[in-house]
Design a protein around this nucleic acid. Structure first.
Lengths: 122, 122
DNA sequence: TTCGAAATTCAATGATCGTTGAAATAAACC
DNA sequence: GGTTTATTTCAACGATCATTGAATTTCGAA
């Protein structure tokens, strides 16, 4: 269980952040994460509507290595969240306008509401 | 003299914008453009400190095709500017925080002050 | 009309990208 | 132990990328 690498936020370069955002699936993940991060119900397997498991794993790694998301390991599951505070400290205002921008694109892949608010361990 | 293609701002997708921003040279161009756009002294050949002419041409096209910059043709010269108003209408706040973000990266290639404020046809 | 400057185009390169499907890990549960 | 579930890793593919240098286009000026 190697503990998953997260870059120090100070080591993240703007060009790397933008590269990580330059993909529709990753923007779809980001939109979904922005709508669910409060309840931390963002398990990786909840995103299977967006891509196959192996492709998701690839995209999750891109977001994580670019410093955009954090991945918490718990048993065999992984939970994602946006590194909002750190991103705001390093790039003030950026992540909010990025999310707003992504949100406005109707062509981005999306998770239905059943994935965002549903209870699954009730 | 084909009139240079500029995409309608409504046809620009967020992922394309981010892809265009995912390069240090293009971010360097954007920073320089942001500091000089008032006086429209942003002729293409002013950027030769950032890359060779042919490579610059390539990067200019990327920025233009992503809807980020506008290119005005005048004789054999071309003048660049950021499509601020249109970008703000389509993606409110985005371009400002992108520029702020780029500005903070000390590792991005930059134009010296002699290129930004100097008079060259005196 | 020839010359020179500004910029683009083209072909070629090696690198990285997104995607697939199969195989490997790794923890949880019987 | 053996099985199931969650996720990653790996090898492969075609596509796109950034970069180079040489050739070309386009216009202004002498």
């Amino acid at each position: 269980m190697k503990p998953v690498f997260h870059p120090d936020i100070e080591d993240v370069a703007p060009a790397d952040v933008f590269a990580a955002l330059a993909d529709p699936i990753r923007l779809g993940i980001l939109i979904a994460l922005a709508e669910v991060s409060e309840v931390d119900k963002a398990r990786c397997s909840h995103f299977t509507a967006l891509a196959s498991p192996s492709l998701l794993s690839y995209h999750f790694a891109k977001l994580r290595e670019a410093g955009i998301t954090r991945m918490r390991v718990e048993g065999t599951s992984r939970y994602l969240s946006i590194r909002r505070d750190e991103l705001n400290q390093r790039f003030p205002g950026l992540i909010a306008s990025v999310i707003e921008t992504a949100r406005r694109d109707p062509n981005l892949p999306r998770l239905g509401p059943e994935w965002l608010s549903g209870s699954d361990e009730a």
